[in-house]
Design a protein around this nucleic acid. Structure first.
Lengths: 159, 159
DNA sequence: GTATCTGCAAACCCTTTGCAATAAG
DNA sequence: CTTATTGCAAAGGGTTTGCAGATAC
């Protein structure tokens, strides 16, 4: 389950034409081929998903068009390389992903009880990132901030 | 590889007697038994390790005393529960751990090229954590901040 | 036409688990 | 003595991979 309490962002609307074209261009530039499987995967992510794991994506795609998990696993590194996707913290021992394209950078609050994910923005993290990298001579490519605990709903529930 | 550039902390020195006794007490309090395997694992972590994965711990223990991986896997939840260990981000698809006991809270810089881990402290993260939790009605149990990129050594290397 | 991509199933790797033997309390 | 813990080996679950057939270009 994913809950956005602050900074709710609507999924990119109807015209994914532009985003899809960008992905196709990315593929061609790298010498990869534009296949219907890759397009179906990219479209599904762009249109439907903020957070997901491979199984969720597989089941949802499978219900519309035949596809194998292997193709999904093989497409994911491309999607990440293209800037469409990012890996997120693992929960229950397997990898989860989130759409990056068309969303602003954000951090996560994770409820240990109901496993909901809440999102928030904290712009000061970017400054902190810069400062630390300057101090350490590091060239940053990204950061992640995460808080875990018990969400307000679960706190008031009879457990 | 783990590199501590800032806030270098020496491993707890010779007298682990106190820490080990705390662990034994923890076990007894919960009705768990104090076995030589559990003691060997705890001692090895307290004395040698900041970051490690199960295989490293297994090989190092194995060279001194007979032990099975199963026992290590079964001991880890206890070590975490006792406050001695914490899970850290996974790298290469499997779990890594770090010693918590006797170390101050810190964050990680991860080099994508040489896979070194650098550590730093950023006390303002605690304030940020508090503020976000207040806003969202969340009861925090911990946070994690991580930066990835290229470390200074790798930046100056050929290629 | 040719090289890449797909689907399938087998292989992999880390982790967990069932069971009989061992050892802690 | 009783019951938790161990070691082993087998099972699990997510991910990767070899290969033959399909398909993008």
């Amino acid at each position: 389950m994913v809950v956005s309490r602050s900074k709710v962002e609507p999924p990119p609307s109807g015209e994914l034409v532009e985003e899809m074209e960008a992905f196709r261009t990315f593929l061609r530039d790298r010498g990869y081929r534009v296949t219907k499987e890759r397009e179906a995967i990219a479209k599904s992510i762009l249109r439907n998903r903020d957070h997901f794991d491979v199984d969720e994506l597989f089941l949802s795609l499978r219900s519309k068009t035949p596809i194998s998990k292997a193709s999904i696993y093989r497409a994911i590194p491309l999607l990440i390389e293209s800037g469409l996707l990012a890996e997120v913290y693992l929960e229950n021992g397997h990898m989860h992903y989130e759409r990056v394209y068309g969303r602003e950078h954000h951090s996560h609050l994770r409820c240990l009880k109901c496993h909901s994910i809440f999102e928030f923005s904290a712009p000061e993290l970017t400054n902190l990132e810069k400062r630390i990298c300057r101090q350490e001579g590091f060239k940053s490519q990204g950061h992640k901030f995460e808080i875990w605990g018990i969400c307000s709903v679960c706190q008031t529930e009879n457990s």
